[in-house]
Simulated scan of single mutants.
Amino acid sequence: MMEIVTVSITCASGDQAQRIAQHLVENRLAACAQTHPIHSTYVWQGAMEFSAEVMLTAKTVTAKLPQIEAAVVALHSYEVPEILAQSVAWCSESYTAWLHETLKG
């Protein structure tokens, strides 16, 4: 079975996060996506930045990561969008079955 991962994608706005989330789920690149507001502090082009952003978290499998990256790069407004995948240490059997079935599409 393919490894389950969560993918974190920082977005400039709720609209952008929703567009990307919908694309990922509709195209069966992610089984589920959630968004929530965040406040980010980072250095960009040598300057300290403070931004209100939206974090998109997608549940998927490692085999979908290249397609997710391509989709995010195409749909995102940032020059360098954050796309981080984290391995899931444990997942219930029923959720695992649902996720794999959903991604078959």
Rank of each mutant, 00 (worst) to 15 (best):
R19H: 09
C32E: 11
L24I: 08
T6C: 04
I9C: 10
W44Q: 08
A70G: 06
I38Q: 08
V54Q: 12
V7Y: 12
Q67H: 08
R19N: 11
Q45K: 06
T6F: 15
T57D: 03
N27R: 15
V80E: 13
W90V: 09
L99F: 05
S8Q: 13
Q86E: 04
Y95I: 11
T41N: 05
M1R: 14
Q67M: 14
Q18R: 14
L103H: 05
A33N: 09
A12I: 04
A30D: 03
V73H: 07
S8G: 09
G14N: 12
I68L: 09
T35W: 04
Q16A: 10
L56P: 02
C11H: 15
E26M: 02
Q18K: 11
G105N: 07
T6A: 06
S8E: 14
A31Y: 03
L56W: 06
S94W: 04
A12E: 15
G105V: 06
W90H: 12
L84M: 10
R19I: 07
T10A: 14
T35F: 04
A58W: 14
D15Q: 13
Q45Y: 00
S92I: 00
G105W: 00
I38D: 08
V54E: 08
N27M: 05
L56Q: 05
Q67W: 01
A21H: 09
L56E: 03
A21K: 08
Q16N: 10
R19E: 15
N27F: 03
Y78M: 06
S77K: 12
E49H: 12
E93I: 02
V7W: 09
T6V: 10
H100S: 13
V5H: 05
A85P: 02
I9Y: 05
C32T: 14
E69D: 15
W44V: 05
N27I: 10
E26H: 07
A58N: 09
S77L: 13
